[in-house]
Deep mutational scan, measured.
Amino acid sequence: MLEGKVKWFNSEKGFGFIEVEGQDDVFVHFSAIQGEGFKTLEEGQAVSFEIVEGNRGPQAANVTKEA
């Protein structure tokens, strides 16, 4: 699992990017966010995740919000 911070997330469109120190930003789709209820992320929020190869390159999977 990697750790990063949410760079930005558009809850209307359901996607955004996660910043990872020393690496390129990683695309995140709302469907990759773990948990119940409305799936969104806040700018600057700490998250842990895995990287998988998507249709358009690397993207986040199994995203969990850090306490």
Rank of each mutant, 00 (worst) to 15 (best):
M1F: 08
L2K: 14
L2C: 05
E3F: 11
E3M: 12
G4C: 02
G4T: 01
G4H: 02
K5H: 06
K5N: 09
K7S: 06
K7Q: 04
W8D: 02
W8L: 04
F9H: 01
F9C: 02
N10V: 07
N10H: 15
N10Y: 05
S11H: 12
S11E: 07
E12S: 13
K13P: 02
G14D: 01
G16Q: 00
G16C: 01
G16D: 00
G16N: 00
F17W: 11
F17R: 03
I18V: 05
I18Y: 00
I18K: 00
I18H: 00
I18C: 02
E19H: 09
E19N: 12
V20T: 12
V20E: 02
V20D: 02
E21G: 10
E21Q: 10
E21D: 14
G22I: 03
G22C: 05
G22N: 14
Q23N: 10
Q23D: 09
Q23Y: 14
Q23V: 10
D24R: 14
D24E: 12
D24T: 13
D25I: 04
V26S: 03
V26A: 04
F27Q: 02
F27G: 02
V28R: 00
V28S: 02
V28A: 03
H29V: 03
F30V: 06
F30S: 07
S31C: 04
A32R: 03
A32H: 08
A32F: 06
I33T: 02
Q34K: 15
Q34I: 10
Q34S: 15
Q34H: 12
G35L: 11
G35V: 08
E36Q: 10
F38W: 13
F38E: 07
F38Q: 10
K39T: 06
T40F: 10
T40H: 09
L41I: 07
L41Y: 02
L41S: 02
L41G: 02
E42D: 11
E42L: 11
E42V: 14
E43M: 13
E43C: 05
G44R: 08
G44E: 04
G44I: 02
G44P: 03
Q45G: 11
Q45C: 05
A46V: 14
V47S: 01
S48N: 15
F49L: 10
F49G: 02
F49Y: 05
F49M: 05
F49E: 00
F49R: 00
F49S: 01
E50K: 11
E50H: 15
E50M: 11
I51G: 02
I51D: 01
I51A: 06
E53N: 10
E53Q: 15
G54I: 06
G54W: 14
N55M: 12
R56H: 13
G57V: 04
G57S: 08
G57K: 07
P58W: 10
P58D: 06
Q59K: 07
Q59D: 02
A61L: 08
A61T: 15
N62Y: 05
N62C: 05
N62Q: 08
V63P: 01
V63W: 00
T64H: 12
T64G: 10
K65Y: 15
E66V: 11
E66W: 15
E66R: 15
A67C: 06
